[in-house]
Design a binder for these strands. Structure first.
Lengths: 409, 409
DNA sequence: GTAGTTTATTAAGGACTTTAATAAACCACT
DNA sequence: AGTGGTTTATTAAAGTCCTTAATAAACTAC
């Protein structure tokens, strides 16, 4: 079936070895040959040979020599070992989160450390698809200037968008999503300014990569991230691999089939829901709310239509009954969705990410309690530790993956 | 993180080459060196060298020579090519489907062709877990005798059971499932009679392997199989890989959260449902059914409590309104479940397997129509081509996978 | 300064692969 | 029957990469 045109020639071995060495270096800082032998199983001559080659390519630095900082002390005597370090600044990657309300861009080094970053809200929500892409492009140029880097030093870019993405790099048109976006071939969105390979994926998918990499799901192979900010989407990782289906895996439109949830169009993420429902509650209240009676109204500054998710959370934290009720309503919906996902996919861990992650102290207990009432599988629960950076960090992660993969191929 | 202790030593290359050659042979019958060169990308000397080695190990036969059957005609002149064939009888594998109502066992060769097979219903549904396993063991011995094989010629065994299975080979206890089964370590269930490695998995998971291998989902990487016989379970394959989650992925208990479906315990597969609901309908009918008025009653032989799924399907096929109604009710439930699964996982194809597969002509149109009414993703639909053999064939497939994997390691 | 210890480097040997050259086996034609 | 043409098998030579074993280097401690 699968005609593998790549014969198993000798250099394949070198590639395997180099990959092993490089991987050990990415997650470890300064290493001696002995460390690398332990990590890779290779012999000493091979390790040195591979490292020399990587040094030649610029990916690795030989650190220290005589004046290595931590070198003294650790070594019990004997010829000092050579010390190798990944050259994190040999190249860079780009991450872009083209969100519903704002755009975030960043530059990161080969370790994934973010060098420079900018977040900018859209002027208003009617900014068109093409213009959004152009804004991102302009920001990227600013960031490159700011960091003093050249576009040629960037190996790859990752981009998150709040909608499913097909394999050929097109956004799937959702009713609720930006018109015009689906018509773009996003893979070429940054051209002609930037020629780097652009990996586009949906924000929830990238969020799960991020959480597994350096967030709340490190070391967990079966995990679902509920990205619950402006929209509600799930990023699914099973068996250590991201699940994309035909591109639209993780969509939560099935909520309309779950009891207690209304029609599709109304389904947003928690932030939107918290604000919207709270506003509606207050506005629909048949009695006028007296000053001081409601923390929520207080926070909203007497303008209920301006109430935000943060206000609701803060009010709930202070015990405001109306806010607590709103939180309960929204979490109930989320819990039902989570129950379906958990039962069907049986993940070990469920991570709440996006806007609400910072309010984990308020939301998570409610969520846990409501999920417990449903007869579903019981995964561990956690709030994201990445704030609303999950998607952006995930974009960096895909870009890095791509960079390392194409690096030795 | 992952300390890979396997250094990239030279023999790794040979292993890669051998794997490529073997894989090409499994799916192709008799092959010349030229074919293998095209399939693997290896050079001619390497191909011959690998084949000679495999011949020495017994896995490959050199067929033909002078009297090869299809050899003449194809070759335009020149030195005749050596022809290699997988020695399908070099070893064997075992498949077992420990179903809810019956047990099926088989022996298959390295190509997966079933040599001998036996299906036997349980005496009654109260046969205990341990006894069921013993019965399977006895049947396997009979099959070995029948085929004239020795237990030592069997490389691996696969076993399907109608419940989730944990990684350590234990069935997950479900209310509806056989008491006592969860306490067994199924991996050692065939010992001490048979020492072969036993791969236990849930029937729906194995069904999806089978459908992809030689059923309705060949060549499809994103597919969900709804195994809808006595119970309802989903086998999920995404990105070409079986999704197991923590072992219980594919469970359909979320149906209780879907509108229009009652409590958990009542949820069975289509066969059970069709029979049960039809019986209830008939029995609850307030007017006595006149002879000839209902095809369904006719088929049931005036004993409504004995009505089977086959009868309902047959009656519906003949247009009996009551039967059509029952089919619609049952398919509605299935369609809702399928809508949730499709939306969340976005598979290309949905396969209906298990008992109902044979009745695809009746069920599929109804299913398709009802699924279409739901606002979900729209995968292609198909009925299994494996009858109720999906799980058994899948058990053979896992056993084969294991056998080939351990063969060159 | 010398013994002891740890690591780097060099050398030798083995397992693969590939390409190129040579030998074998068959057809078709005269 | 013999000879040319053609296709495939086999052998030979060269190269890459790994490993183990031996040798050299660099440093500490006494």
């Amino acid at each position: 079936m699968t005609a593998k045109r790549t014969a198993a020639t000798a250099p394949v071995l070198r590639r395997i070895s180099a990959e092993a060495v490089l991987q050990a270096m990415v997650s470890a800082g300064e290493l001696t040959a002995g460390d690398l032998i332990a990590a890779t199983g290779l012999s000493r001559p091979t390790v040195h040979s591979v490292c020399d080659e990587l040094i030649g390519l610029g990916w690795v630095l030989e650190t220290g020599g005589a004046a290595s900082p931590a070198a003294t002390g650790t070594q019990p005597g004997g010829r000092p070992s050579r010390r190798y370090t990944l050259n994190a600044c040999a190249a860079f990657v780009v991450g872009i989160d083209l969100g519903a309300t704002k755009v975030s861009c960043c530059l990161a080094d080969l370790r994934g450390r973010i060098i420079v970053e900018t977040t900018r809200p859209w002027r208003d929500e009617h900014v068109g698809a093409l213009e959004r892409v152009q804004i991102a492009r302009r920001i990227m140029q600013e960031l490159l200037d700011q960091a003093g880097l050249d576009a040629g030093q960037v190996l790859a870019a990752g981009m998150a968008i709040p909608a499913p993405v097909t394999d050929d790099g097109h956004a799937v048109a959702l009713e609720s999503y930006l018109p015009g976006m689906a018509a773009l071939d996003l893979r070429t969105a940054l051209q002609p300014d930037f020629q780097w390979p652009l990996l586009v994926d949906n924000d929830a998918n990238l969020a799960v990569l991020a959480e597994r990499w350096c967030g709340a799901a490190q070391g967990v192979d079966n995990v679902v991230v509920l990205l619950a900010g402006e929209r509600l989407g799930a990023g699914i990782c099973l068996g250590g691999r991201l699940i994309r289906g035909g591109g639209a895996a993780g969509e939560m439109r099935f909520l309309e089939l779950v009891e207690g949830v209304g029609n599709t169009d109304a389904i947003g993420g928690m932030c939107r829901e918290l604000g919207a429902i709270a506003a509606a509650e207050i506005l629909a209240g048949d009695r006028p709310v007296a000053a001081g009676e409601s923390v929520l109204v207080e926070l909203a500054g007497r303008r209920p239509e301006d109430v935000t998710a943060e206000m609701v959370v803060e009010a709930a934290r202070r015990g405001d009954p109306a806010a607590v009720e709103v939180v309960a309503v929204v979490m109930d919906r989320t819990a039902r969705a989570a129950a379906v996902v958990s039962t069907l996919l049986d993940p070990e861990l469920l991570v709440l990410a996006g806007g609400p992650a910072g309010a984990g102290d308020v939301l998570l207990p409610v969520f846990e309690q409501q999920l417990g009432q449903l007869n579903s599988a019981r995964p561990r629960l956690a709030a994201s530790t990445l704030g609303d950076h999950s998607a952006l960090v995930g974009a960096v992660r895909t870009a890095l993956d791509h960079a390392f993969e194409s690096l030795l191929g």
